[in-house]
Amino acid sequence: MKSVVTTVIAAADAAGRFPSTSDLESVQGSIQRSAARLEAAEKLAANLDNVAKEAYDACIKKYSYLNNAGEANSTDTYKAKCARDIKHYMRLIQYCLVVGGTGPLDEWGISGQREVYRALGLPTAPYVEALSFARNRGCAPRDMSPQALSEYNTLLDYAINSLS
């Protein structure tokens, strides 16, 4: 899993040297910037279910045709799966906040995403709507500090871009 620390170690190992002063400085820089993302991760973890539920409700409200017979949100099983998918994205975003990079989203969310949705015949627009709702719902300083919110929004944007 890529992070600042593992990148630094991989580079030092490739050169066969001990961690140098500049290696340690770049790790220190990443550590100093980590307070905001850890705050966002902590608050998102505490409210993940609610955030995901609101985002799911918002996208079904906008794309209400999904409730029609035969559509992706028509039965209870489908509804549960849709809600679960949104929750998966929010969980991966939380992982990215913890790691401090887009590794978890890239490896576990985006890789193969297009192929899966095409095979299952799922529209991506509702996912975009759900994540956009979460993007606009977050509010500083009510939910988290401005720095933390900006880290969180950056990752939501990243996920939205991957879907659109």
């Binding site: 899993m1 992070s3 620390v5 593992t6 170690i9 991989a10 850890l38 991760a41 902590e42 998102l44 973890a45 993940l48 998966h88 969980r91 939380q94 992982y95 913890v98 790691v99 401090g100 590794g103 978890p104 576990w108």
Partner: peptide, 23 residues
């Protein structure tokens, strides 16, 4: 290769839960 952060993420993903132990 993992570090302290990615180890927490991999452990949480094994049970499809969020990383709870931020402390």
């Amino acid at each position: 290769m993992l570090d302290a952060f990615s180890k927490a993420v991999v452990a949480a993903d094994a049970s499809t839960s969020v990383v709870g132990d931020i402390g």
